[in-house]
Design a protein around this nucleic acid. Structure first.
Lengths: 172, 172
DNA sequence: CATAATTTAATTGTGCGCAATACAATTTTG
DNA sequence: CAAAATTGTATTGCGCACAATTAAATTATG
């Protein structure tokens, strides 16, 4: 990014800063926003495609989980998607209200709620699965490029997770 | 996995070719979730760092904008961050309530609201700017790797924008 | 001048996303 | 068995994020 843009620009880090800190600064600034902004861009493409099914992207993610393997607990879905019950509980109720899934308590352990696809939910798969293809095309990149990008994002994700206060990086 | 690693570099969009559709499917599935999930991971790292200033990440982004160039309209900030007024208006009011910015109508065009840093908001910069450095370190990758990733994400973002329904092309 | 079209912010409604909390069922422990 | 700790889910509160709508000011037009 360089110092550029100095219309009013107080962008410079400060005199005498070490190069490594400056690098980390530029990195943190640009990389996080690039990810944040790309996520929004994805959502803007997804939204009109999912709209005709009355789905949102997180709801679609849950259905993708269930199409892969049906009959899962709330916790299991949350672990795969990295979402907690505060997000999933109302989401799953909306999916239930829309008739795509059913929520039943496990007979063995009644604390657990088992999420199951309804016939309507299962029947949605052939139609809605194609949305992934449209998204893939909208990315406008080759499979190889995407694989590189995905691998890099995965590694980044792991690195970030290691800095969570509850795991190893404990500053609060 | 059903889709082998085919060696054709480009995605074929034409109808009737199943194999490339399978590639696009895998691509759309994996790439979007990787971005979505990495954005959450970033936020989880940012949250404890910003907490001591009482800021959220989008609020921090607005302050970064203003530290770069002060006295900006809501629309100008929204264009840079790709957020609309429905998001920014309440956010800016919270920043004002916290004493970091002031909101005043432009004298020339009273439709526009000018956002200005207060002394408290300006004074926050030296302390809070360092968060970017911490984030950069948390990424755990080199500047070169980050640059590659950022460039790829930027290109991806542009490609996605071209697929927006109401917008046939760039023009942003 | 008056009216219409345009531009810009703010408001409203719905749905994530997560922390904190509550609660019920299960497991552990004495 | 009863009490305590743990586990899984639901609830609440706050803050994004965006579509749709509203309101106000500016500009264009007759």
């Amino acid at each position: 990014m360089s110092t550029g843009q100095s219309s009013n620009g107080q962008l410079s880090i400060g005199p005498g800063d070490g190069t490594e800190d400056g690098d980390a600064l530029a990195l943190g600034r640009q990389l996080c926003f690039a990810v944040y902004s790309a996520a929004h861009a994805f959502n803007r493409v997804y939204k009109p495609l999912l709209e005709r099914f009355g789905l949102t992207y997180p709801q679609y993610l849950v259905l993708l989980c269930l199409w892969q393997r049906d009959r899962r607990t709330v916790k299991g879905i949350g672990e795969e998607l990295r979402l907690d019950s505060g997000t999933l509980s109302p989401l799953l109720k909306r999916l239930e209200a829309a008739g795509f899934v059913s929520r039943t308590r496990d007979a063995g352990d009644e604390r657990q709620v088992i999420i199951t696809l309804t016939p309507k939910g299962t029947g949605l798969k052939p139609e809605a699965f194609g949305i992934l293809t449209e998204i893939g095309k909208a990315c406008g990149c080759s499979l190889e490029e995407a694989a590189v990008l995905r691998t890099a994002l995965g590694e980044l994700h792991r690195n970030l997770d290691e800095n969570l206060p509850t795991r190893s990086g404990g500053q609060r």
